[in-house]
Design a protein around this nucleic acid. Structure first.
Lengths: 131, 131
DNA sequence: CAGTGTCTACGAAGCCGTTCGTAATGTCAA
DNA sequence: TTGACATTACGAACGGCTTCGTAGACACTG
């Protein structure tokens, strides 16, 4: 047994912002993350560094420190983290019912045509199969 | 001008739990909220009281203190708060695109038939109108 | 009135997240 | 080697959230 399943903690706001950079850019140094984040934000370099150190301790990111400049990458896939966050919001604010959440999301923002088609397919699968 | 628009702050975890009780039960005393929350939880009476006092200061709830036992009610509708939370999650984790969030929600939880029908209607409205 | 119970008010502690200043370490060029 | 620069490590401060203990105000009963 090389590894017991340990669920990753829910990333905080600042941590999620960093994860999004890593998901978009791929493995990155502190400097690269810092520059990517400071488009519109205003955060110090050591703040990003410190947060990445904390995230490493939490297991949210994986650090390659074989070179002097460490390189970080996400420990979880974007979609898994998204699922985690959706599940949490569902429980905390929607009593676990997905329908209301989806309606609000559709109301608020537009989805792409491909996404809408995909949503219809999922609705068909969930509803149409056994009427 | 009796009142300038001041957007309510996003409720925290404990605050949201209390709001859900108030939305479900209607105007309630501290004791009623406390009893409703302590199904499965274990929170002290004064903890609930203190949180409600803070929520009053924030404007999240409205307090009727004409009687000795104060009565609290939500300042915002459930649906407005839900929309606020969905919007926030959309921006923080989904780059503002509703489609991915909806797909995750559909994957994770089942929606009711009425809700699914409503979702289809919204998809029709959003997609069919301008092909 | 005295006692008992309920309620609100207040302060403080503990934890977590965020931020940053400073120190220590490593790198490279002149 | 020395100096300049980049990078990591560490500690501390600050604020927000959550929790609760204690005190004070009020009400009712006998």
């Amino acid at each position: 047994m090389p590894r017991t399943k340990k669920p990753l903690p829910r990333p905080t706001r600042a941590e999620l912002a960093i994860l999004r950079v890593l998901w978009d850019r791929g493995p990155s140094s502190v400097r690269e993350v810092h520059e990517a984040i400071n488009v519109g934000r205003e955060t110090g370099y050591t703040t990003v560094l410190k947060t990445l150190q904390i995230m490493t301790a939490k297991g949210l990111v994986i650090r390659d420190d074989t070179q002097r400049t460490h390189v970080f990458q996400p420990a979880a896939q974007r979609s898994d983290t998204q699922r985690q966050l959706v599940t949490e919001l569902l429980d905390r604010a929607f009593g676990g019912s997905a329908g209301q959440l989806i309606l609000h999301a559709l109301e608020t923002r537009r989805a792409s045509h491909e996404e809408m088609a995909e949503i219809r397919r999922m609705l068909d699968r969930a509803e149409g199969k056994k009427p």
